[in-house]
């Protein structure tokens, strides 16, 4: 039990530290155009890298994942909200697993 609690505490620390260090260290606005451009792209790059190809392995089989992904891409292209896109992708995966 003691080992588990120590592990949980360590995990919490190594999760918090990378989240807190830059946020508390860079209190001033950096004015470099290069850095500001770089940071502007971070959410897009990070989400892109995290989504693909991981999404293909998120449902247990490739076919249903592809269906879900295509549905999400199409709805996102028409700028539907987060919930609509997520629920439709879930439905697409579910249906393709039943029907195919």
């Amino acid at each position: 039990m003691y080992r588990i609690l120590t592990a949980v505490l360590l995990m919490a620390l190594v999760t918090y530290i990378p989240r807190a260090l830059p946020m508390t260290f860079f209190k001033k606005r950096l004015t470099s155009r290069f850095i500001r451009s770089f940071l502007y792209y971070v959410p897009y790059a990070a989400l892109g890298a995290m989504t693909f190809p991981a999404i293909l392995y998120s449902t247990g089989d490739l076919t249903s994942a592809l269906f879900g992904m295509v549905v999400a891409l199409v709805l996102a292209f028409y700028e539907k909200g987060l919930l609509i896109v997520a629920l439709s992708a879930i439905a697409a995966v579910f249906l393709s697993q039943i029907l195919l």
């Binding site: 989504t51 449902t59 249903s64 700028e79 539907k80 987060l82 896109v85 997520a86 992708a89 579910f94």
Partner: peptide, 21 residues
């Protein structure tokens, strides 16, 4: 299992909804 598998895609679909526009 089918429901669980289908739910697995939810967060990725949200990422797509955030990045594509």
């Amino acid at each position: 299992e089918l429901v669980q598998n289908a739910m697995g895609i939810a967060l990725y679909a949200m990422f797509i909804a955030l990045v594509v526009p």
